[in-house]
Design a protein around this nucleic acid. Structure first.
Length: 885
RNA sequence: GCGGGCGUGAUGGAAUGGUAGACAUACCGGACUUAAAAUCCGGAAGCCUUGCGCUGUGCGGGUUCGAGUCCCGCCGCCCGCACCA
């Protein structure tokens, strides 16, 4: 970047006349002007290329937090930038408003979930509006709006008709004291969070989406999602978990409970020689059948069920087993294996039974050592036949290994080849069937809670399950509910569930379960395209406006929300609501906002202290913290995600109040790359605010002189330098915003402002000639337009101050002159043996021979080579030269 | 436990396999001021033997003319794990 020498002195009067920028007054004024002009309301019929920017809509928890500020600041930059580039931008906002916190608040504070939710929405809407976001508020809705969940119920009915939804039994965490189903997060160490009672598992009949039918399709389509981060695609691919394996029947030596074999699913049939036991899930039919006659086994199973239903808890639990005493025959060898129950075997995956091969699986090995089961290698590494002792031999499938006396006739080959050969061999002999299996399970959507969308079906003793006729929708939530009574509020409501059957007219009961809140968020992006339409979507508009071009939200949604939305889009396609498969073309996952934590020691207990009450002092590089009110010495703790429990939160309202929305937005965009965590610091905000003031001052000082000047690029000297700097920045900032590299765009803006501050001072002092003034006017306008997506209010103020007409919000993005962004000369670093030893400035288009001659003529090179020709000379045009001696 | 990610000055970070530390924060020095704040100018990775010096991107290896970047093995931290949203 070209630095322009600054000249000082002679314009003190002008400088002192400059008032500090007052964001408070300016921001509310512009927000009102934008709103009155209606410039952010999207006409979906306008004939311009569409661009749909969407940030994940917030849960109305009470007040917005810094994570929201970051999320919406990021999205707003994209929205404003794309609008300036001529796109017809859709940028809506709504509320993910159903969910448990409203019920918890209701119980705690005796307030109705609906009142709590809508009050929070009012507060948060006001807060979001104070950020100056370019949102189309006319499309706003909350998922708890009757109008919204009515359409969701309509979708449910269509999906049900299309066979995309079914009912079956599945397990839940049951709190026997509160008589309620617990979420995984409500189970703490196997006990209910409120009652403290030992949690049990119960089977309930629940509704499921057939998402697993789409597993292969959802997996394959990931390849086409090149606008997504690779890590998210990998996470989804692993979650779907495609695997090729085989189901093998192990015949029981004596049939039990009507079963004469245990069928195991395995992806490693090549290790069958090393099989030493069978492990079945505590919920395997065989295990359930054995429970009746074996109290000890029943107690073991009950213990296993107390671990909970989350996969994490099951995996972390100590691996335990119970010998059933039953035995099975090895399918290819003349020996028998014991059948154990293992607490690590999931009934929901595969067949609920596996064969244990301790030599080649660490978990199986630990299990075998614990219970004295045999360990026998199925293969060895070439040239090393040491038997497995405490560490399982698990080489990559691509590595060659030597099989021991293998039934399929395999000797030395890779694991993968052995798997394929073995599956074919077993299939030929009718010993098993090779199958492709997915880890992805069907999506259970039933919730035994009040604050969710009612599932629109009716249970009739004569007709069975009867869908609510679509003309009877919505099925409204009743207002008068008791939430502090144990059990499902809709179930124990005195009248709500009692209805007549729409088919036969007899007395019947409503379904009292509500929908998982993931359902709400799986199609809201489609609803935004026609938020008031009388059916779930207007298919023509939805298909024209979807997919979302840029979706922005937290990495914590990388799997479930995004996968469910992808499924929903396919299901909506199948039922005629949209005509596309993938809802999100571009995806960006932003990092968290984190902050230091502070603790006070009180009565021997440690208490968290909020940053607003903390004074930080720094003496000789040592930072210490004191309580601002009590003066206590505080312990400075680790930097963690902002959370209420650790009190390390900063209220966006406070920041906007003292520094303004532009400063808050700008700080969120500067420094940290948006996909990484950002540490909120007071110093950082102040730095951002100083830049806001600096722009105002630097442009303001020269504004009077520039007002009536027509912008034009400079052709020589300082004016040319100014224009080069400005045009290069225009190009770079545009490219950075396209890549969502906002921190880099910010750095370039700092550079540009630094380099034109000097010339602008000259203008202010009346020392600039006409050409420099024109170049400065152009550069000043460019700065304003470049900062506009990030600091929209400041940009409007500056635009006006510089004598321009109209609103920045509707002004096109500036264009750069290609001739001004390329330098004729380039400076190449010259390395000798890979270490930098000098520079070579040479014509940009110099050919290899010219560069070679110039390099060899350099003193450093001559000194190093001693006049001898180098062993090798590497010249990368416009990048680097390396002389190898 | 499994899956994914991250790790660079005091700090946030920059760097299509090509000058490590752009830009900023904090800090230090100077100017202005009665003084402070603000502002402006300048300094700055570490080390020493101050040299066209050496070392340096979590740790240990490897590939390459050249590695922060690619590969292998560790360590630490963060996210997800299907009823939190």
């Amino acid at each position: 970047m070209v630095k322009v020498a600054a000249k000082s002195g002679g314009f003190l009067v002008n400088l002192m006349a400059m008032e500090r920028y007052n964001p408070k007054q300016a921001e509310s004024r512009w927000q009102q002007i934008w709103e009155e002009a209606g410039i952010y309301a999207t006409d979906t019929g306008k004939p311009a290329p569409k661009y749909y920017v969407l940030e994940m809509f917030p849960y109305p928890s009470g007040r917005i937090h810094m994570g929201h500020v970051r999320n919406y600041a990021l999205g707003d930059v994209v929205a404003r930038y794309k609008r300036a580039c001529g796109f017809n931008v859709l940028h809506p906002m709504g509320w993910d408003a159903f969910g448990m916190p409203a019920e918890n608040a209701a119980i705690q504070n005796k307030i109705h979930p609906r009142d709590w939710t809508y009050a929070n929405i009012d507060t948060m809407r006001k807060q979001l509006k104070s950020m100056g976001l370019s949102l189309d508020w006319s499309r706003e809705f909350a998922t708890c709006d009757v109008a919204y969940y009515k359409q969701q119920q309509a979708l449910f009915l269509d999906f049900l008709k299309a066979g995309l939804i079914y009912r079956r039994n599945s397990k839940v965490n049951w709190d026997p004291v509160d008589m309620t189903v617990l979420a995984n997060e409500q189970v703490i160490d196997g006990r209910g969070w409120r009652s403290g009672a030992l949690v049990e598992q119960r089977e309930l009949t629940q509704w499921f989406f057939r998402i697993s039918d789409f597993a292969g399709e959802l997996d394959e389509a990931l390849d086409g999602l090149d606008g997504w981060p690779e890590k998210v695609r990998t996470m989804q691919r692993n979650w779907i978990g495609k695997s090729r394996g085989i189901e093998l029947a192990f015949a029981l030596t004596s049939p039990h409970a009507g079963l004469d074999a245990v069928t195991c699913f395995t992806t490693r049939p090549d290790t069958l020689h090393g099989a030493s036991f069978i492990a079945i899930s505590p919920d395997h039919p065989l295990s359930l059948a054995l429970e009746a006659g074996n109290p000890e086994l029943a107690a073991f199973n009950a213990d296993c069920r107390r671990i909970g239903t989350s996969e994490e808890a099951l995996e972390k639990a100590e691996k335990r087993g119970f010998d059933t005493g039953l035995r099975v025959k090895h399918p290819t060898e003349d020996r028998e294996l014991p059948v154990w129950i293992g607490n690590f075997v999931l009934m929901s995956y595969g067949t609920g039974a596996v064969f244990g091969c301790p030599a080649h699986d660490q978990r199986d090995l630990d299990f075998a050592r614990k219970y004295g089961l045999p360990v026998q290698n199925a293969f060895f590494m070439p040239g090393d036949d040491t038997a497995v002792l405490t560490e399982a031999l698990v080489p990559a499938k691509s590595e060659k290994v030597v099989f021991v006396d293998h039934f399929a006739g395999i000797s030395e080959t890779t694991g993968q080849e052995a798997i394929d050969t073995t599956i074919a061999w077993l299939e030929e002999r009718n010993l098993g069937k090779g199958i492709t299996r997915y880890r992805l399970r069907d999506w259970g959507l039933s919730r035994q809670r009040y604050w969710g969308a009612p599932i629109p079906v009716i249970h009739c003793d004569s007709c069975g399950v009867v869908p609510v006729p679509v003309e009877d929708l919505p099925v409204r939530l009743p207002d008068d509910v008791t939430l502090d009574k144990p059990g499902n509020p809709l179930d124990h409501h005195p009248t709500w569930k009692h209805v007549t059957c729409p088919q036969c007219g007899k007395d019947a009961r409503r379904e009292t379960d509500t929908m998982d809140t993931f359902v709400d968020s799986s199609w809201y992006f489609a609803r935004f395209t026609a938020p008031h339409h009388e059916s779930p979507t207007d298919p023509a508009i939805a298909s024209a406006w979807l997919p979302v071009d840029q979706y922005i939200g937290g990495i914590e949604h990388a799997i479930l929300h995004l996968l469910y939305s992808r499924f929903f889009t396919r299901a909506m396609r199948q039922t005629g609501h949209v005509d596309l498969k993938e809802p999100f073309r571009g995806l960006f996952t932003q990092g968290m906002v984190v902050h230091e934590t502070y603790r006070a020691q009180r009565d021997g207990k440690s208490e968290w202290v909020t940053p607003a009450d903390v004074l930080i002092e720094e003496v000789d590089g040592q930072r210490t913290a004191r309580h601002a009110k009590t003066g206590e010495t505080l312990v400075i703790g680790s930097i963690e995600k902002m959370s209420k429990s650790k009190k390390n939160v900063v209220d966006p309202d406070d920041i906007i109040d003292s520094y303004g929305a532009d400063t808050a937005r700008f700080f969120m965009l500067s420094d940290s790359p948006p996909d990484r965590d950002v540490i909120w610091t007071e110093a950082g905000v102040e730095g951002a605010h100083r830049f806001v003031q600096r722009i105002w001052r630097v442009l303001g000082e020269a504004a009077d002189e520039l007002k009536s000047v027509a912008p034009a690029a400079g052709t020589a000297g300082e004016a040319l330098a100014v224009s080069r700097a400005a045009h290069k920045t225009v190009k770079a900032v545009g490219e950075d915003i396209e890549r969502l590299a906002f921190n880099k765009a910010v750095a370039r803006l700092y550079e540009l402002v630094n380099s034109v501050a000097g010339p602008l001072s000259e203008v202010a002092a009346g020392k600039a000639d006409a050409e420099l003034k024109a170049a400065c006017k152009q550069a000043a306008n460019m700065i304003v337009l470049l900062i506009a997506p990030m600091m929209p209010h400041l940009a409007e103020e500056c635009w006006k101050m510089l004598g321009n007409d109209g609103m920045v919000a509707v002004t096109p993005w500036p264009e750069h002159d290609p001739a001004l962004v390329t330098d004729e000369q380039v400076t190449l670093p010259v390395q000798i043996n890979g270490k930098k030893r000098g520079d070579l400035t040479i014509d940009r288009n110099a050919d290899q021979a010219a560069i070679e001659a110039a390099v060899l003529a350099l003193d450093v090179v001559k000194a190093a080579t001693g006049g001898q020709p180098p062993r090798k000379l590497i010249i990368v045009p416009r990048r680097i030269v390396n002389v190898v001696i």
